[in-house]
């Protein structure tokens, strides 16, 4: 598995850089890398990171975990927190797997 070039960007992806997205707001059980605070929030694709095995399946020891596209997404802090005390231009960036992202 380690031999795979996870970082390869040469592929068709559902989302492109600067596309607007929302993070899905469903709840989850088991191991998952999408923090609660970012679910349901609107942002944009910052970059495409590559294709990685789905950690939700690795955690359950699935034999051939699905390979999924990972994106870095940028959010305005003002859009993430109700009472954000910082500046309008402050941002936060997270890595979100494709199956947690929706079109706007």
């Amino acid at each position: 598995m380690l031999e795979l070039d996870y970082r390869s960007k040469a592929m068709d992806t559902k989302f492109k850089i600067n596309d607007e997205i929302t993070v899905d707001s469903r709840s989850s059980t088991g191991h998952c890398r999408t923090p609660a605070y970012i679910r349901g929030k609107k942002g944009v694709i910052e970059r495409i990171c590559g294709r990685y095995p789905n950690p939700e399946e690795i955690a359950l020891c699935k034999k051939d975990p699905k390979i999924v596209t990972l994106y870095r997404c940028r959010f305005k802090q003002m859009d993430v927190w109700d009472n954000y005390s910082g500046k309008d231009s402050d941002t936060i960036e997270l890595e979100i797997y494709e199956h947690w992202l929706n079109d706007v």
């Binding site: 996870y6 890398r33 999408t34 923090p35 970012i38 990171c49 590559g50 990685y52 950690p55 990972l70 802090q77 910082g86 500046k87 231009s89 402050d90 941002t91 936060i92 960036e93 997270l94 890595e95 979100i96 797997y97």
Partner: peptide, 10 residues
Amino acid sequence: EIKVHDSNAD
């Protein structure tokens, strides 16, 4: 601008 990076995946 402050940019926070949540290192939450790979």
